[in-house]
Amino acid sequence: MTDIPALEVIELKKTYASGVEALKGVSLTVQQGDFFALLGPNGAGKSTLIGILSSLVNATAGDARIFGVSIRNERSAAMRLIGLVPQEINFNMFEKPFDICVNQAGFYGIPRAEACRRAEKYLKQLALWDKAHHTARALSGGMKRRLMIARAMMSEPRLLILDEPTAGVDIEIRRSMWRFISAINAEGTTVILTTHYLEEAEQLCRNIAIIDHGRIIENTSMRRLLGKLDVETFVLDLAEPLDELPEIANVHLRRVDELTLEAEMARQHDLNSLFAALSAAGVAVRSMRNKSNRLEELFVRLVDRGKVAA
């Protein structure tokens, strides 16, 4: 494996005909073998960026290199290295999953015999083999999402881009999809993921970029980003109704209802002191949970900061 990045985005800009500036000079590097999260609120520019990388959107300026191959100057060669799982279902509903996969391989110049072998392999791995010869419109929502992953794998890409692949998929199927993608990543495929399920990104991804209003506002490792979280909020379910809100040093308490409290505290303070203070005030806690996951909390703060700056 060489030091060439899997993806290098260089000052990429996109202004649509309507005048909307979707990307305002995005630069980004994803190393080979990474599992990379590209996050951002709706309309931030994620899908435009992915569209440009997969040659579905024309860039206004800038370039991107896939394993050193320019999408602007060597489009065909660059596209051979990418597999795309788009956000919207985009296969022919009247075709059969097996044909959809075999045709996809054909578009990449893979001979039919090899294409058939790969179609069987990936449809089996994604638990779709028993539906391989039914029309695609008969598949459930989760199956359609898995079919798009199988289709993207037909060219065995070195860089797999997943644009919200688990949207609307139940938890069991979502987990099975992530097991598959994690295995692919472990075998050496670089994965770029966009998702609105931030706990997914936190668990799976090693590096992260957050895009907002067409600009990268954060680009670092997941560990370093989570280390920036200085305040956490916990939700406490109480055993008995609370008459009066106790005063506890270094903790901001807020009553949600008579049996629920929210406690916001700096990360350097330990939870033992909170529980000791609550016990001393006669407050019995039945259970506790994080209000939101850590990445979600950071994400909201970063994006809110961007709104204020804008």
Binding site: S55, L56, S76, N90, N103
Partner: peptide, 17 residues
């Protein structure tokens, strides 16, 4: 039909000239 159903993207995102 391929534009309407968006499966033209299969070809546009492929290396096919």
């Amino acid at each position: 039909g391929s534009k309407f159903g968006r499966y033209v993207e299969e070809m546009l995102a492929s290396p096919m000239p």
